[in-house]
Design a binder for these strands. Structure first.
Length: 563
DNA sequence: ACTGTGTGCGCG
DNA sequence: AAAGCGCGCACACAGT
Protein backbone atom coordinates (compact mmCIF):
# COMPACT_ATOMS: atom_id res chain seq x y z
CA UNK A 1 0.00 0.00 0.00
CA UNK A 2 0.92 3.66 -0.29
CA UNK A 3 0.99 6.15 2.55
CA UNK A 4 1.08 9.64 1.15
CA UNK A 5 2.55 12.36 3.34
CA UNK A 6 1.60 15.98 2.94
CA UNK A 7 1.87 19.09 5.07
CA UNK A 8 -1.45 20.73 5.81
CA UNK A 9 -1.83 23.69 8.15
CA UNK A 10 1.42 22.92 9.90
CA UNK A 11 0.62 19.29 10.50
CA UNK A 12 1.37 16.17 8.54
CA UNK A 13 -1.50 14.48 6.76
CA UNK A 14 -0.96 10.78 6.09
CA UNK A 15 -3.31 9.34 3.49
CA UNK A 16 -3.42 5.57 2.96
CA UNK A 17 -3.99 4.45 -0.62
CA UNK A 18 -3.94 1.08 -2.31
CA UNK A 19 -1.20 0.12 -4.72
CA UNK A 20 -3.55 1.33 -7.44
CA UNK A 21 -3.97 4.70 -5.72
CA UNK A 22 -7.51 4.16 -4.41
CA UNK A 23 -8.49 5.20 -0.87
CA UNK A 24 -7.54 2.54 1.66
CA UNK A 25 -8.67 3.75 5.08
CA UNK A 26 -8.95 6.99 6.96
CA UNK A 27 -6.24 9.65 6.67
CA UNK A 28 -4.37 10.50 9.86
CA UNK A 29 -3.29 13.95 11.01
CA UNK A 30 0.05 13.93 12.78
CA UNK A 31 1.81 16.83 14.49
CA UNK A 32 5.13 17.52 12.79
CA UNK A 33 7.33 16.42 15.72
CA UNK A 34 5.40 13.15 15.90
CA UNK A 35 6.22 12.18 12.34
CA UNK A 36 9.17 9.85 13.08
CA UNK A 37 7.12 8.00 15.70
CA UNK A 38 4.22 7.70 13.28
CA UNK A 39 6.50 6.35 10.59
CA UNK A 40 8.03 3.85 12.99
CA UNK A 41 4.61 2.67 14.13
CA UNK A 42 3.23 2.36 10.62
CA UNK A 43 6.23 0.98 8.74
CA UNK A 44 5.83 -2.63 7.67
CA UNK A 45 6.50 -4.80 4.63
CA UNK A 46 4.46 -3.69 1.67
CA UNK A 47 4.25 -0.05 2.67
CA UNK A 48 5.55 2.58 0.29
CA UNK A 49 5.98 6.04 1.75
CA UNK A 50 4.99 8.65 -0.78
CA UNK A 51 6.41 12.14 -0.47
CA UNK A 52 7.28 15.08 -2.65
CA UNK A 53 10.99 14.94 -1.93
CA UNK A 54 13.01 12.41 -0.02
CA UNK A 55 15.46 15.18 0.83
CA UNK A 56 12.74 17.03 2.71
CA UNK A 57 10.97 14.20 4.50
CA UNK A 58 13.45 11.47 5.23
CA UNK A 59 16.15 13.29 7.24
CA UNK A 60 13.79 13.79 10.21
CA UNK A 61 13.04 10.06 10.24
CA UNK A 62 16.74 9.20 10.11
CA UNK A 63 17.57 11.75 12.80
CA UNK A 64 15.16 9.90 15.09
CA UNK A 65 16.98 6.62 14.35
CA UNK A 66 14.19 5.49 12.08
CA UNK A 67 14.25 4.25 8.51
CA UNK A 68 11.85 3.11 5.82
CA UNK A 69 12.16 0.23 3.40
CA UNK A 70 10.52 1.79 0.37
CA UNK A 71 9.41 5.19 -0.82
CA UNK A 72 8.02 6.99 -3.83
CA UNK A 73 9.86 10.23 -4.49
CA UNK A 74 7.26 12.14 -6.46
CA UNK A 75 9.48 14.90 -7.72
CA UNK A 76 12.05 12.48 -9.11
CA UNK A 77 9.27 10.43 -10.67
CA UNK A 78 7.62 13.52 -12.09
CA UNK A 79 10.77 14.56 -13.88
CA UNK A 80 11.30 11.10 -15.34
CA UNK A 81 7.74 10.75 -16.57
CA UNK A 82 7.49 14.28 -17.94
CA UNK A 83 10.46 13.64 -20.19
CA UNK A 84 10.14 9.92 -20.97
CA UNK A 85 9.30 8.99 -24.53
CA UNK A 86 7.09 6.18 -23.24
CA UNK A 87 4.76 8.56 -21.38
CA UNK A 88 4.90 11.43 -23.84
CA UNK A 89 1.15 11.46 -24.48
CA UNK A 90 0.07 11.00 -20.85
CA UNK A 91 -1.95 13.62 -19.00
CA UNK A 92 1.03 14.09 -16.71
CA UNK A 93 3.38 14.90 -19.56
CA UNK A 94 1.02 17.07 -21.56
CA UNK A 95 -0.15 19.22 -18.64
CA UNK A 96 1.31 22.72 -18.39
CA UNK A 97 4.30 23.24 -16.14
CA UNK A 98 3.41 23.17 -12.47
CA UNK A 99 5.16 23.56 -9.16
CA UNK A 100 6.23 19.94 -9.54
CA UNK A 101 8.48 21.09 -12.36
CA UNK A 102 9.72 24.31 -10.88
CA UNK A 103 9.53 24.34 -7.11
CA UNK A 104 12.98 24.33 -5.61
CA UNK A 105 14.01 21.49 -3.42
CA UNK A 106 14.79 23.16 -0.13
CA UNK A 107 16.77 21.08 2.28
CA UNK A 108 16.29 22.24 5.83
CA UNK A 109 19.20 21.69 8.13
CA UNK A 110 18.62 20.82 11.74
CA UNK A 111 18.17 24.05 13.67
CA UNK A 112 18.59 24.84 17.33
CA UNK A 113 15.35 25.23 19.22
CA UNK A 114 13.83 28.58 18.36
CA UNK A 115 14.28 31.14 21.13
CA UNK A 116 11.28 33.32 20.44
CA UNK A 117 7.77 33.07 19.16
CA UNK A 118 8.75 35.08 16.14
CA UNK A 119 11.44 32.65 15.07
CA UNK A 120 9.18 29.71 15.76
CA UNK A 121 6.73 31.26 13.38
CA UNK A 122 9.46 31.89 10.79
CA UNK A 123 10.69 28.34 10.96
CA UNK A 124 7.22 26.96 10.57
CA UNK A 125 6.73 29.06 7.47
CA UNK A 126 10.08 27.99 6.07
CA UNK A 127 9.37 24.36 6.70
CA UNK A 128 6.08 24.50 4.87
CA UNK A 129 6.94 26.73 2.03
CA UNK A 130 8.28 24.31 -0.57
CA UNK A 131 5.36 21.88 -0.42
CA UNK A 132 2.63 24.38 0.32
CA UNK A 133 3.07 25.54 -3.25
CA UNK A 134 -0.12 24.04 -4.59
CA UNK A 135 1.34 20.57 -4.63
CA UNK A 136 -1.11 17.75 -4.12
CA UNK A 137 0.85 14.54 -3.62
CA UNK A 138 -2.22 12.32 -3.79
CA UNK A 139 -3.22 13.71 -7.17
CA UNK A 140 0.37 13.56 -8.35
CA UNK A 141 0.76 9.92 -7.33
CA UNK A 142 -2.40 9.02 -9.23
CA UNK A 143 -1.23 10.94 -12.28
CA UNK A 144 2.07 9.09 -12.20
CA UNK A 145 0.42 5.70 -11.77
CA UNK A 146 -1.86 6.48 -14.72
CA UNK A 147 1.02 7.64 -16.89
CA UNK A 148 2.94 4.44 -16.19
CA UNK A 149 -0.08 2.22 -16.71
CA UNK A 150 -0.68 3.80 -20.10
CA UNK A 151 2.84 3.19 -21.36
CA UNK A 152 3.69 0.38 -23.74
CA UNK A 153 6.08 -1.22 -21.24
CA UNK A 154 4.90 -0.19 -17.77
CA UNK A 155 7.20 -2.72 -16.13
CA UNK A 156 10.37 -0.94 -17.20
CA UNK A 157 9.12 2.43 -15.99
CA UNK A 158 8.02 0.94 -12.67
CA UNK A 159 11.52 -0.44 -12.21
CA UNK A 160 13.02 2.90 -13.14
CA UNK A 161 10.85 4.81 -10.67
CA UNK A 162 11.50 2.29 -7.92
CA UNK A 163 15.24 2.38 -8.55
CA UNK A 164 15.35 6.17 -8.56
CA UNK A 165 13.42 6.34 -5.29
CA UNK A 166 15.55 3.66 -3.68
CA UNK A 167 18.55 5.70 -4.73
CA UNK A 168 17.06 8.70 -2.98
CA UNK A 169 16.83 6.67 0.23
CA UNK A 170 20.43 5.54 -0.08
CA UNK A 171 21.61 9.09 -0.75
CA UNK A 172 19.79 10.37 2.33
CA UNK A 173 21.16 7.56 4.48
CA UNK A 174 24.70 8.11 3.24
CA UNK A 175 24.47 11.78 4.04
CA UNK A 176 23.04 10.97 7.44
CA UNK A 177 25.67 8.37 8.35
CA UNK A 178 28.66 10.08 6.76
CA UNK A 179 31.94 8.69 5.52
CA UNK A 180 34.37 7.94 8.37
CA UNK A 181 37.13 10.51 8.10
CA UNK A 182 40.29 10.70 10.16
CA UNK A 183 41.14 14.38 10.43
CA UNK A 184 44.48 13.58 12.05
CA UNK A 185 45.50 11.39 9.10
CA UNK A 186 44.41 14.03 6.63
CA UNK A 187 46.26 16.77 8.49
CA UNK A 188 49.43 14.71 8.61
CA UNK A 189 49.14 14.09 4.88
CA UNK A 190 48.75 17.83 4.26
CA UNK A 191 51.68 18.72 6.48
CA UNK A 192 53.90 16.14 4.79
CA UNK A 193 53.01 17.41 1.35
CA UNK A 194 52.65 21.15 1.89
CA UNK A 195 54.39 22.04 5.14
CA UNK A 196 52.88 23.39 8.33
CA UNK A 197 49.35 24.70 8.23
CA UNK A 198 49.04 28.30 7.05
CA UNK A 199 46.05 30.65 7.12
CA UNK A 200 43.81 30.84 4.08
CA UNK A 201 45.42 32.97 1.38
CA UNK A 202 48.98 32.28 2.48
CA UNK A 203 51.10 30.05 0.27
CA UNK A 204 52.34 27.02 2.24
CA UNK A 205 56.06 26.47 2.65
CA UNK A 206 56.49 23.70 0.09
CA UNK A 207 54.59 25.67 -2.57
CA UNK A 208 56.67 28.75 -1.75
CA UNK A 209 59.85 26.74 -2.30
CA UNK A 210 58.63 25.42 -5.63
CA UNK A 211 57.55 28.92 -6.68
CA UNK A 212 61.06 30.18 -5.90
CA UNK A 213 62.57 27.33 -7.95
CA UNK A 214 60.35 28.19 -10.87
CA UNK A 215 61.20 31.88 -10.75
CA UNK A 216 64.89 31.01 -10.77
CA UNK A 217 64.74 28.42 -13.52
CA UNK A 218 62.58 30.61 -15.73
CA UNK A 219 64.51 33.75 -14.79
CA UNK A 220 61.23 35.46 -14.02
CA UNK A 221 61.32 36.95 -10.49
CA UNK A 222 57.73 38.22 -10.69
CA UNK A 223 56.18 34.94 -11.85
CA UNK A 224 52.90 34.06 -10.19
CA UNK A 225 52.61 30.28 -10.56
CA UNK A 226 48.91 30.41 -9.65
CA UNK A 227 48.15 32.29 -12.86
CA UNK A 228 48.03 30.07 -15.95
CA UNK A 229 48.39 33.12 -18.19
CA UNK A 230 51.47 34.26 -16.33
CA UNK A 231 53.00 30.79 -16.45
CA UNK A 232 52.27 30.44 -20.16
CA UNK A 233 53.98 33.77 -20.88
CA UNK A 234 56.97 32.76 -18.85
CA UNK A 235 57.30 29.34 -20.51
CA UNK A 236 57.16 30.93 -23.94
CA UNK A 237 59.74 33.49 -22.94
CA UNK A 238 61.96 30.56 -22.01
CA UNK A 239 61.64 29.31 -25.57
CA UNK A 240 59.08 26.54 -25.02
CA UNK A 241 56.39 25.95 -27.62
CA UNK A 242 53.17 25.51 -25.65
CA UNK A 243 49.50 26.38 -26.14
CA UNK A 244 48.42 26.01 -22.55
CA UNK A 245 49.71 25.00 -19.15
CA UNK A 246 47.73 21.79 -19.06
CA UNK A 247 49.42 18.86 -17.42
CA UNK A 248 49.25 16.56 -20.45
CA UNK A 249 50.90 19.21 -22.59
CA UNK A 250 53.61 20.07 -20.08
CA UNK A 251 54.46 16.40 -19.60
CA UNK A 252 55.77 16.22 -23.16
CA UNK A 253 58.27 19.04 -22.69
CA UNK A 254 61.93 18.80 -21.75
CA UNK A 255 62.89 21.71 -19.53
CA UNK A 256 64.11 22.13 -15.95
CA UNK A 257 60.96 24.12 -15.16
CA UNK A 258 58.58 21.29 -16.00
CA UNK A 259 59.14 19.03 -13.00
CA UNK A 260 58.75 21.76 -10.37
CA UNK A 261 55.79 23.20 -12.25
CA UNK A 262 53.94 19.89 -12.36
CA UNK A 263 54.70 19.33 -8.70
CA UNK A 264 53.47 22.83 -7.91
CA UNK A 265 50.21 22.20 -9.74
CA UNK A 266 49.69 18.87 -8.00
CA UNK A 267 50.18 20.37 -4.55
CA UNK A 268 48.25 23.51 -5.36
CA UNK A 269 45.33 21.33 -6.34
CA UNK A 270 45.57 19.39 -3.09
CA UNK A 271 45.60 22.65 -1.15
CA UNK A 272 42.67 24.31 -2.90
CA UNK A 273 40.43 21.27 -3.37
CA UNK A 274 41.09 19.14 -0.29
CA UNK A 275 43.25 21.25 2.00
CA UNK A 276 42.66 22.63 5.47
CA UNK A 277 39.73 24.77 4.32
CA UNK A 278 37.96 21.72 2.93
CA UNK A 279 38.55 19.81 6.15
CA UNK A 280 37.13 22.64 8.26
CA UNK A 281 34.10 23.00 6.08
CA UNK A 282 33.16 19.42 5.30
CA UNK A 283 34.39 17.10 8.03
CA UNK A 284 32.66 17.20 11.39
CA UNK A 285 32.88 14.73 14.25
CA UNK A 286 34.96 12.39 12.15
CA UNK A 287 32.52 12.16 9.27
CA UNK A 288 32.32 13.61 5.77
CA UNK A 289 28.66 14.01 4.85
CA UNK A 290 28.42 14.01 1.06
CA UNK A 291 25.27 15.54 -0.34
CA UNK A 292 24.31 13.64 -3.45
CA UNK A 293 21.83 14.92 -6.00
CA UNK A 294 19.94 11.88 -7.23
CA UNK A 295 19.37 12.09 -10.96
CA UNK A 296 21.43 15.29 -10.97
CA UNK A 297 23.07 14.33 -14.26
CA UNK A 298 20.88 14.07 -17.38
CA UNK A 299 21.97 10.49 -17.90
CA UNK A 300 20.64 9.54 -14.48
CA UNK A 301 23.94 9.53 -12.73
CA UNK A 302 24.11 11.22 -9.39
CA UNK A 303 25.67 14.62 -9.00
CA UNK A 304 27.04 16.04 -5.77
CA UNK A 305 26.53 19.30 -4.01
CA UNK A 306 29.49 20.72 -2.19
CA UNK A 307 32.49 18.90 -0.89
CA UNK A 308 33.26 17.33 -4.23
CA UNK A 309 32.08 13.90 -3.15
CA UNK A 310 32.28 12.46 -6.66
CA UNK A 311 35.81 13.73 -7.18
CA UNK A 312 37.38 12.53 -3.98
CA UNK A 313 41.05 12.33 -5.00
CA UNK A 314 42.89 9.06 -4.54
CA UNK A 315 45.52 11.23 -2.86
CA UNK A 316 43.38 11.75 0.27
CA UNK A 317 41.60 8.41 0.50
CA UNK A 318 44.02 7.25 3.17
CA UNK A 319 42.09 9.54 5.54
CA UNK A 320 38.96 7.44 5.02
CA UNK A 321 39.38 4.90 7.81
CA UNK A 322 36.87 2.53 9.36
CA UNK A 323 36.00 2.94 13.02
CA UNK A 324 37.73 0.58 15.48
CA UNK A 325 36.12 -2.83 15.18
CA UNK A 326 34.62 -1.90 11.81
CA UNK A 327 35.73 -2.37 8.21
CA UNK A 328 35.16 -0.70 4.91
CA UNK A 329 33.82 -3.03 2.26
CA UNK A 330 34.66 -1.46 -1.08
CA UNK A 331 32.98 -2.88 -4.18
CA UNK A 332 33.58 -1.80 -7.73
CA UNK A 333 31.80 -3.05 -10.83
CA UNK A 334 34.46 -4.06 -13.34
CA UNK A 335 34.06 -2.57 -16.85
CA UNK A 336 30.46 -1.78 -16.11
CA UNK A 337 29.67 0.28 -19.20
CA UNK A 338 30.88 -2.17 -21.86
CA UNK A 339 29.05 -4.98 -20.11
CA UNK A 340 25.89 -2.91 -20.04
CA UNK A 341 26.34 -2.14 -23.72
CA UNK A 342 26.79 -5.81 -24.56
CA UNK A 343 23.62 -6.72 -22.70
CA UNK A 344 21.52 -3.88 -24.11
CA UNK A 345 22.54 -4.78 -27.61
CA UNK A 346 22.08 -8.49 -27.04
CA UNK A 347 25.66 -8.91 -28.22
CA UNK A 348 26.45 -12.41 -27.02
CA UNK A 349 30.00 -12.26 -28.41
CA UNK A 350 30.84 -9.18 -26.36
CA UNK A 351 29.11 -10.60 -23.30
CA UNK A 352 31.14 -13.78 -23.73
CA UNK A 353 34.33 -11.74 -23.90
CA UNK A 354 33.56 -10.49 -20.40
CA UNK A 355 32.27 -13.78 -19.00
CA UNK A 356 34.20 -14.63 -15.88
CA UNK A 357 37.14 -12.41 -16.75
CA UNK A 358 38.34 -8.90 -17.40
CA UNK A 359 36.32 -7.81 -20.42
CA UNK A 360 39.25 -6.12 -22.09
CA UNK A 361 41.33 -9.28 -21.78
CA UNK A 362 38.43 -11.12 -23.34
CA UNK A 363 38.37 -8.71 -26.25
CA UNK A 364 42.07 -9.38 -26.80
CA UNK A 365 41.40 -13.13 -26.63
CA UNK A 366 38.72 -12.72 -29.29
CA UNK A 367 41.46 -11.54 -31.63
CA UNK A 368 39.93 -8.13 -32.31
CA UNK A 369 42.96 -6.24 -30.99
CA UNK A 370 46.43 -7.07 -29.71
CA UNK A 371 46.65 -5.57 -26.24
CA UNK A 372 44.43 -4.83 -23.26
CA UNK A 373 45.22 -1.15 -23.58
CA UNK A 374 44.06 -1.18 -27.21
CA UNK A 375 40.88 -2.99 -26.19
CA UNK A 376 40.15 -0.43 -23.53
CA UNK A 377 40.87 2.54 -25.77
CA UNK A 378 38.76 1.09 -28.54
CA UNK A 379 35.86 0.33 -26.23
CA UNK A 380 35.87 3.78 -24.68
CA UNK A 381 36.26 5.25 -28.14
CA UNK A 382 33.20 3.36 -29.32
CA UNK A 383 31.10 4.53 -26.38
CA UNK A 384 32.31 8.13 -26.52
CA UNK A 385 32.39 8.49 -30.29
CA UNK A 386 36.14 8.82 -30.82
CA UNK A 387 37.13 9.32 -34.43
CA UNK A 388 40.84 9.89 -34.09
CA UNK A 389 43.78 8.88 -31.98
CA UNK A 390 44.29 5.62 -30.18
CA UNK A 391 40.57 5.18 -29.54
CA UNK A 392 39.29 5.97 -33.00
CA UNK A 393 41.92 3.84 -34.70
CA UNK A 394 40.76 0.55 -33.21
CA UNK A 395 37.00 1.13 -33.24
CA UNK A 396 36.58 -0.44 -36.72
CA UNK A 397 38.13 -3.69 -35.51
CA UNK A 398 35.71 -3.71 -32.62
CA UNK A 399 32.86 -3.14 -35.04
CA UNK A 400 33.87 -6.27 -36.97
CA UNK A 401 34.13 -8.39 -33.84
CA UNK A 402 31.02 -7.04 -32.09
CA UNK A 403 28.68 -5.66 -34.74
CA UNK A 404 25.55 -5.69 -32.60
CA UNK A 405 27.03 -3.63 -29.78
CA UNK A 406 28.64 -1.13 -32.10
CA UNK A 407 25.46 -0.84 -34.12
CA UNK A 408 23.53 0.13 -30.99
CA UNK A 409 25.78 3.08 -30.17
CA UNK A 410 25.95 4.08 -33.83
CA UNK A 411 22.18 4.22 -34.05
CA UNK A 412 22.03 6.30 -30.87
CA UNK A 413 24.56 8.69 -32.37
CA UNK A 414 22.64 9.00 -35.65
CA UNK A 415 19.41 9.71 -33.75
CA UNK A 416 21.14 12.43 -31.77
CA UNK A 417 22.58 13.97 -34.92
CA UNK A 418 19.03 14.26 -36.23
CA UNK A 419 17.95 15.91 -32.99
CA UNK A 420 15.89 12.92 -31.82
CA UNK A 421 15.77 11.65 -28.24
CA UNK A 422 17.21 8.30 -27.18
CA UNK A 423 16.31 6.12 -24.23
CA UNK A 424 18.03 3.93 -21.69
CA UNK A 425 17.07 0.35 -20.98
CA UNK A 426 14.43 1.35 -18.43
CA UNK A 427 13.18 4.32 -20.41
CA UNK A 428 14.99 7.40 -19.16
CA UNK A 429 14.91 9.70 -22.14
CA UNK A 430 17.57 12.11 -23.31
CA UNK A 431 16.77 15.78 -23.78
CA UNK A 432 16.61 17.09 -27.32
CA UNK A 433 18.61 20.10 -28.49
CA UNK A 434 17.10 23.49 -27.91
CA UNK A 435 15.13 25.28 -30.62
CA UNK A 436 18.12 27.33 -31.77
CA UNK A 437 19.90 24.09 -32.72
CA UNK A 438 17.13 23.16 -35.14
CA UNK A 439 16.79 26.71 -36.42
CA UNK A 440 20.50 26.92 -37.18
CA UNK A 441 20.29 23.61 -39.02
CA UNK A 442 17.34 24.74 -41.10
CA UNK A 443 18.99 28.05 -41.90
CA UNK A 444 22.25 26.39 -42.93
CA UNK A 445 20.38 24.28 -45.48
CA UNK A 446 18.09 27.04 -46.74
CA UNK A 447 18.84 29.46 -49.56
CA UNK A 448 20.80 31.68 -47.20
CA UNK A 449 22.98 28.77 -46.05
CA UNK A 450 26.72 28.82 -46.65
CA UNK A 451 29.28 26.00 -46.55
CA UNK A 452 30.70 27.52 -43.36
CA UNK A 453 27.28 27.46 -41.72
CA UNK A 454 26.79 23.88 -42.81
CA UNK A 455 30.16 22.84 -41.41
CA UNK A 456 29.32 24.48 -38.10
CA UNK A 457 25.92 22.80 -37.99
CA UNK A 458 27.35 19.40 -38.85
CA UNK A 459 29.94 19.79 -36.15
CA UNK A 460 27.26 20.58 -33.59
CA UNK A 461 25.20 17.66 -34.83
CA UNK A 462 28.12 15.26 -34.39
CA UNK A 463 28.70 16.70 -30.95
CA UNK A 464 25.08 16.05 -29.97
CA UNK A 465 25.40 12.59 -31.49
CA UNK A 466 28.34 11.84 -29.21
CA UNK A 467 26.16 12.88 -26.29
CA UNK A 468 23.25 10.59 -27.24
CA UNK A 469 25.67 7.78 -28.12
CA UNK A 470 27.03 7.95 -24.61
CA UNK A 471 23.66 8.64 -23.00
CA UNK A 472 22.25 5.19 -23.68
CA UNK A 473 25.28 3.47 -22.18
CA UNK A 474 26.02 5.80 -19.28
CA UNK A 475 22.32 6.05 -18.44
CA UNK A 476 21.74 2.30 -18.47
CA UNK A 477 24.88 1.79 -16.40
CA UNK A 478 23.43 4.27 -13.91
CA UNK A 479 20.26 2.17 -13.83
CA UNK A 480 22.29 -0.92 -13.11
CA UNK A 481 24.10 0.91 -10.33
CA UNK A 482 20.80 2.11 -8.81
CA UNK A 483 19.38 -1.40 -8.93
CA UNK A 484 22.56 -2.77 -7.41
CA UNK A 485 22.69 -0.35 -4.52
CA UNK A 486 18.95 -0.55 -3.92
CA UNK A 487 19.16 -4.32 -3.74
CA UNK A 488 22.16 -4.17 -1.46
CA UNK A 489 20.38 -1.73 0.82
CA UNK A 490 17.44 -4.07 1.17
CA UNK A 491 19.72 -7.00 1.93
CA UNK A 492 21.61 -5.05 4.59
CA UNK A 493 18.42 -3.81 6.21
CA UNK A 494 17.06 -7.34 6.43
CA UNK A 495 20.04 -8.32 8.59
CA UNK A 496 20.04 -5.30 10.90
CA UNK A 497 16.65 -3.68 11.15
CA UNK A 498 17.55 -1.00 13.72
CA UNK A 499 18.98 2.45 13.08
CA UNK A 500 20.94 2.74 9.82
CA UNK A 501 24.29 3.14 11.54
CA UNK A 502 23.77 0.22 13.92
CA UNK A 503 24.74 -2.28 11.23
CA UNK A 504 26.46 -2.37 7.84
CA UNK A 505 25.45 0.70 5.85
CA UNK A 506 26.53 2.45 2.63
CA UNK A 507 28.75 5.47 3.22
CA UNK A 508 30.02 6.39 -0.22
CA UNK A 509 29.09 5.97 -3.86
CA UNK A 510 30.82 6.91 -7.11
CA UNK A 511 28.96 5.80 -10.24
CA UNK A 512 30.10 2.17 -10.28
CA UNK A 513 31.59 1.84 -6.83
CA UNK A 514 29.97 1.55 -3.43
CA UNK A 515 31.53 1.60 0.02
CA UNK A 516 29.86 0.03 3.05
CA UNK A 517 30.95 0.67 6.63
CA UNK A 518 30.43 -2.59 8.45
CA UNK A 519 31.19 -4.23 11.78
CA UNK A 520 34.27 -6.37 11.14
CA UNK A 521 32.34 -9.55 11.86
CA UNK A 522 29.85 -8.73 9.10
CA UNK A 523 32.36 -7.70 6.44
CA UNK A 524 32.54 -11.01 4.57
CA UNK A 525 28.80 -11.34 4.64
CA UNK A 526 28.52 -7.83 3.18
CA UNK A 527 30.90 -8.83 0.40
CA UNK A 528 28.60 -11.74 -0.46
CA UNK A 529 25.59 -9.45 -0.49
CA UNK A 530 27.38 -7.11 -2.87
CA UNK A 531 27.86 -9.97 -5.33
CA UNK A 532 24.34 -11.28 -4.92
CA UNK A 533 22.93 -7.79 -5.48
CA UNK A 534 25.01 -7.46 -8.65
CA UNK A 535 23.53 -10.68 -10.00
CA UNK A 536 20.05 -9.41 -9.14
CA UNK A 537 20.68 -6.09 -10.86
CA UNK A 538 21.76 -7.88 -14.04
CA UNK A 539 18.56 -9.95 -14.02
CA UNK A 540 16.36 -6.95 -13.28
CA UNK A 541 17.69 -5.06 -16.28
CA UNK A 542 18.52 -7.77 -18.74
CA UNK A 543 16.47 -10.81 -17.71
CA UNK A 544 18.11 -14.05 -18.68
CA UNK A 545 20.63 -12.55 -21.09
CA UNK A 546 23.96 -14.22 -20.35
CA UNK A 547 25.94 -11.23 -19.17
CA UNK A 548 27.95 -11.12 -15.95
CA UNK A 549 28.80 -8.18 -13.72
CA UNK A 550 31.90 -9.15 -11.79
CA UNK A 551 32.89 -6.99 -8.85
CA UNK A 552 36.18 -6.31 -7.25
CA UNK A 553 35.44 -6.38 -3.54
CA UNK A 554 37.96 -5.41 -0.88
CA UNK A 555 37.60 -5.54 2.89
CA UNK A 556 39.93 -2.86 4.23
CA UNK A 557 40.58 -0.48 7.08
CA UNK A 558 41.41 2.48 4.82
CA UNK A 559 39.78 3.33 1.51
CA UNK A 560 43.22 3.82 -0.04
CA UNK A 561 43.95 0.11 0.47
CA UNK A 562 41.19 -0.92 -1.93
CA UNK A 563 42.16 -1.75 -5.51
C1' DA B 1 32.40 44.61 -4.33
C1' DC B 2 30.04 41.71 -7.17
C1' DT B 3 29.16 38.58 -11.40
C1' DG B 4 30.31 35.90 -15.42
C1' DT B 5 33.66 33.35 -18.14
C1' DG B 6 37.75 30.71 -18.95
C1' DT B 7 41.23 27.55 -17.30
C1' DG B 8 42.60 23.50 -15.28
C1' DC B 9 42.09 19.24 -12.73
C1' DG B 10 39.85 15.82 -9.86
C1' DC B 11 36.51 11.72 -10.39
C1' DG B 12 33.75 7.91 -13.11
C1' DA C 1 40.13 22.22 -29.58
C1' DA C 2 42.97 16.76 -26.38
C1' DA C 3 41.69 12.16 -30.14
C1' DG C 4 36.26 11.15 -26.71
C1' DC C 5 31.23 11.18 -22.81
C1' DG C 6 29.36 12.96 -18.02
C1' DC C 7 30.19 16.05 -13.96
C1' DG C 8 31.90 19.96 -9.60
C1' DC C 9 34.97 23.03 -7.84
C1' DA C 10 38.42 26.78 -7.15
C1' DC C 11 40.79 30.13 -8.83
C1' DA C 12 42.36 34.19 -12.09
C1' DC C 13 40.81 37.64 -14.70
C1' DA C 14 37.80 40.83 -17.07
C1' DG C 15 33.76 43.37 -17.10
C1' DT C 16 30.51 46.22 -14.53
Amino acid sequence: MHIVLDRVDGSVLATPLTDAGEPDGEPTLVAEPGLPAFVAATERPGVRWVWADTTRWYPAVLAADGRVARCVDLRLGHRLLRTALATRTSALATAPESAWDTAPVVVLEARPAPATQASLFDDALLAQEPVADGLDPVAELRAQLAAVAGAADPGALRLLLAAESAGALVAAEVKHAGLPWRVDVHERLLADALGPRVPYGVRPQRLEELAADLRTVLDDPALNPDSPADVLRSLRRAGLVVDSTRKWELERLEHPAIAPLLEYKRLYRLLTANGWTWLDEWVHDGRFHPEYVVGGVVTGRWAANGGGALQLPKQVRSAVVADPGWKLVVADAAQLEPRVLAAMAGDTAMAAAGDGQDLYDGVVASGAVQTRQQAKMAMLGAMYGATQGEGGRFVPRLARAFPRALDLVERAARAGERGEPVTTRLGRTSPVPEAAWFEARNRAYSVEGTPAMQRAVESRARSWGRFTRNFVVQGTAAEWALSWMGGLRTRLAARTPGPVTSGPHPVFFVHDELVVHAPAADADWVAEQFRAAAVDAGRILFGGFPVTFPLSVAVVDAYSEAK
